[in-house]
């Protein structure tokens, strides 16, 4: 984050920002503080508290952290735990690692292989979520799905993926769904590294792993931070697994996004739904700070 002098004065810059400020003020900041306010009320959409919502202070927040039962299936603690596993598995170990690996494998390469892999990855990323959900339901079907057809052909049986390994399945699903972003980001980042750096290492005969660790990784630290911040935030809010599992079986895939959906959409408890959203936002903020500090420290060590 080097400081550069501006080309224009602040006032000119502000003018360029006017349309954005308009949208952000009306369609982002206003609703945000509205939700924030609702999170301190018992506002619902139907029932007595729809007509006369009351200010309830921190009650909505306290109920989320009712430690007596909160790890029970269907409670907030359980949803939070599953969400952390989901983010760790599908964003950090999944998308980021797949992204780095694919980007590094095709570093300084062009051609059909690269184009095909990239296009297929992007396709998984851009087609609408309902379409994706249908395709995956068929793909995972116990008896006739593509996956089990292949597995049983090589003698690996026909597991009921969504029943026996639900969390693992949605982690793999989300890795599949979102890797394209990390692949694209990391390959663009790699292109900015001067080839001479790597060529020098080639002459010395360094292994691919050492080249990556000692040359590439330090130079990409900033991009990795950006990537982690974005995909963590997105993964925390991902809702598509609901279309595959409905949050089950027995709440084993109930992500916080699905928990919120149940609270806000099924029972119309918008005050509580708002409280969950605010808590999740704060968790995301802390994680982003965590990444920042970890990568800074890493930099100091090297």
């Amino acid at each position: 984050m080097e400081k550069r002098p501006g080309v224009f004065s602040g006032k000119v810059g502000l003018t360029f920002l006017t349309p954005a400020l308009f949208f952000v003020a009306i369609f982002l900041i206003l609703p945000f503080f509205w939700i924030f306010y609702l999170s301190f009320t018992n506002r619902t959409l139907t029932g007595v508290t729809a007509a006369n919502p009351q200010f309830v202070g921190l009650e909505n927040y306290q109920r989320l952290f009712d430690f007596d039962q909160w790890m029970r299936y269907g409670q907030f603690g359980n949803a939070l735990k599953i969400t952390f596993q989901f983010v760790l598995g599908s964003a950090l170990l999944g998308q980021a690692v797949v992204g780095l690996t694919v980007a590094w494998a095709f570093y300084r390469r062009k051609g059909l292989l690269r184009e095909t892999v990239f296009t297929l990855a992007v396709l998984a990323w851009i087609i609408p979520e309902v379409v994706v959900a249908f395709a995956w339901s068929a793909f995972l079907d116990v008896d006739r799905g593509t996956l089990n057809t292949i597995l049983s052909a090589v003698g690996l049986g026909q597991p009921d993926w969504l029943f026996d390994y639900p969390l693992l399945t949605i982690i793999i699903f989300n890795t599949w769904r979102g890797s394209a972003f990390s692949i694209l980001l990391f390959s663009s980042a790699l292109e900015t590294i001067p080839p001479s750096y790597v060529e020098t290492a080639d002459v010395v005969g360094a292994s691919a792993w050492r080249k990556f660790r000692d040359i590439i990784f330090p130079l990409m630290r900033g991009h990795i931070l950006t990537d982690l911040i974005l995909i963590t935030l997105w993964t925390f809010n991902v809702f598509t697994p609901f279309l595959l599992t409905g949050g089950g079986p027995t709440f084993r895939t109930e992500l916080v996004s699905i928990y919120t959906y149940r609270t806000a959409f099924k029972f119309f408890e918008f005050g509580r739904g708002g409280a969950i959203a605010v808590v999740m936002m704060l968790i995301n903020f802390m994680l982003a700070m965590g990444y920042l500090i970890a990568l800074r420290r890493q930099k100091a060590v090297s």
Binding site: W34, I35, F236, T263, A264, F265, F270, I276, A277, V278
Partner: peptide, 15 residues
């Protein structure tokens, strides 16, 4: 961006 993660969720539908 953090704000938009709140406003993009189901809790935001009423506002």
């Amino acid at each position: 961006m953090l704000f938009s993660s709140v406003v993009g969720g189901t809790a935001a539908m009423v506002p």
